[in-house]
């Protein structure tokens, strides 16, 4: 009788289409976020995260329409991230049916925005995305910094201190992505996940680097994450969410079946 650890598949969406191939048997249109979200829901995903990578401002309307369609058919929590800069952006996403929004760059350029958003919409729907990169040398005490622009731009901010500050300002949850590991498939950066999770009261989602199901287990047991997020291992049909839960359960982790 315990709170379950969560498995969260992430969809990268560009102008209303899922990008980075999705390979499900029996899906008619693998580019349609609604079909992909429904498939994950059928596999018992605990939540769905939708990362909008649409560069153009005009593409935003399409995103809202897509969120609205998913929210009309999939009844598990839906987080939307990507390019959120104002309370109006948040309001529009929530009105479309999102349950949480994930704030990334805007939190770095304007931390007070996190407080403002949490006060207006409630902490429960404000996720702050933390993109961290290791800056210490081998052998030194590990240290991670916040990077923006897909890991290219350093900010000088210490990742653990930053995480604490975001939680204090009102983030209800932190999405911690290792920019060193993202896309590598060699597993989460356990060090940064654990350092942040142990330093804050709010739940932490581990992200970046998942290549197999044991990596998900490690994120929870060693990284102390409350939830694990992955994209490609689920998109390419290598593993289903059910299989991931099976593996977690075998490792003694409480999951929702």
């Amino acid at each position: 009788m315990t709170l379950a650890k969560r498995i969260i598949p992430c969809l990268d969406v560009d102008q209303g289409r899922v990008v980075k191939g999705v390979n499900f048997v029996g899906i008619r249109d693998a580019g349609d976020p609604v079909e992909v979200a429904k498939r994950y829901n059928d596999q018992n995903a605990d939540e769905i995260t939708f990362l909008d990578i649409t560069a153009s401002h005009e593409g935003r309307g399409t995103t809202l329409e897509m969120v609205s369609r998913i929210a009309g058919e999939v009844f598990i929590p839906l987080t939307v991230g990507g390019g959120i800069r104002s309370c109006d952006d948040i309001r529009a996403l929530l009105n479309a049916g999102a349950d949480k929004v994930s704030i990334n760059t805007a939190a770095v350029t304007h931390p007070e925005f996190v407080r403002e958003a949490a006060e207006r919409f409630g902490n429960q729907c404000i996720v702050v995305a933390i993109d961290a990169k290791r800056v210490s040398e081998e052998g030194e005490t590990p240290r991670w910094e916040i990077f923006t622009h897909g890991g290219r731009k350093p900010t000088g901010l210490d990742a653990v201190e930053w995480a604490k500050k975001m939680a204090e300002l009102g983030a209800g949850e932190l999405l911690v992505t290792s920019m060193d590991r993202d896309g590598t498939k060699i597993g989460f950066d356990i060090g940064v996940t654990r350092a942040i999770s142990d330093a804050v009261d709010v739940p932490v989602i581990a992200s970046g680097g998942v290549g197999n199901l044991d990596h998900l287990v490690d994120g929870i047991t060693q990284g102390h994450a409350d939830a694990v997020l992955a994209a490609s291992i689920f998109h390419f049909g290598e593993y289903s969410i059910d299989q991931a839960k099976q593996r977690l359960a075998e490792a003694g982790i409480e999951v929702r079946r």
Binding site: T2, L3, A4, R6, Q124, E173, D198, P203, D226, A227
Partner: peptide, 22 residues
Amino acid sequence: PSDMQEDGERLKVPHMGWNHVT
């Protein structure tokens, strides 16, 4: 309370996720 533990694991607040309802 913010200092709750279960099986040596610290419990986060908010209570977020899927839990059993009796």
